[in-house]
Structures are given as C-alpha cells and as structure tokens.
C-alpha cells in the first residue's frame, strides 16, 4: 500500500457555513495526516467556499483520501491538483530588521519581494510558488535579519 511520499493537493468546494472546516479537518486528524497547508476563501457564490489543502502522502493515500473527502457531507466536490497542470501561489508577510533593506534589493531584484512598510522595521510581501517563498524566507533567516513570518498557505487553480 505504501509508495513514494510526495506533496498532494486537493481543491475542495464546500458549503460556506460553520462546522465545515471542523468536519474536513477531522478526517485528516483521525488518520494522523498532517495538513501541510490549508487556505479557505469564499468563491463567486456566497454560499460556497473553496479549500486548497496540501498534505504529504503516497498515491494510495491520495486516492483513498479523495474518496473520504467526497463522502463527507457538505463537501461539494474534490479535485486532485496535479503539479503539471496547476498554477499555485503563496503569499508571505515577513518582518525584517531595518538593516536588511540593502540585502533585500540585492537578493530580490526579480520583483518577488515588495516592501509594504518602512519604519524601525520593514514589512515585506513575498509572493511566488510555495517553494520560492520557502527559499526567500530561508535566505532572510540565514542573513539573521528575519523577525517574523506569516504565510497564507497555498492557493492553486487548475490551468485547464
């Protein structure tokens, strides 16, 4: 039953009402799956929310879990997002020390970072593929200027 573990993403449409996140999260908890990332937001319909959920697992777990989520009342649809046809983004807000400003222009001249606030500290917005955000955060940490990180979790959409 076990195969190579990798990152698995689901895109769920769910009822927009209290208790739904609890029901979905409970399905993961019971099976000792850690949710690596979850992002929830309302869709073009007021009564419907979109959840983008990421976990680690093998193919078998991924299939089983899709079935489990589909069976969950209040979950309207479940799509596996395959890396080859998915556009995904994550946003992070990071607080760094003031002296990090030079480093910032040096490290991030490609537009992935944007300064949102300048004062005693800087608040910087990082946007990109989750792996890019990982990398940027790591660099700032290595340079010992990083004070705080807040991440949105991954949102993703199928290209087709």
């Amino acid at each position: 039953m076990s195969g190579e573990k990798r990152s698995i993403m689901y895109s769920l449409l769910v009822e927009n009402k209290p208790g739904v996140l609890f029901r979905v999260a409970s399905q993961f908890r019971r099976r000792h799956f850690n949710i690596e990332s979850i992002a929830v937001g309302i869709t073009e319909r007021k009564d419907t929310s979109r959840m983008t959920v990421m976990m680690y697992g093998d193919e078998q777990m991924a299939d089983d879990f899709a079935r489990i989520l589909r069976r969950t009342v209040d979950v309207l649809s479940v799509d596996r997002l395959r890396p080859e046809d998915t556009v995904k983004r994550e946003l992070a807000l990071v607080k760094i020390e003031r002296e990090g400003i030079e480093l910032l222009s040096e490290l991030f001249d490609d537009g992935r970072a944007q300064v949102l606030y300048e004062g005693d500290n800087l608040v910087v917005q990082l946007v990109g593929e989750p792996e890019d955000v990982d990398e940027l955060v790591e660099r700032l940490d290595e340079e010992k200027v990083l004070e705080e990180v807040v991440r949105t979790g991954v949102v993703a959409i199928c290209r087709r």
Binding site: M1, Q60, D64, R67, I68, R70, R71
Partner: peptide
C-alpha cells in the same frame, strides 16, 4: 454502497 470501503482494509 460506500466508496470508501473499497480497498480500506483489504485490497
């Protein structure tokens, strides 16, 4: 009738 039963405990 429950799709999650298929393959749950035995293949």
């Amino acid at each position: 009738v429950d799709p999650t039963e298929i393959g749950k405990n035995v293949t």
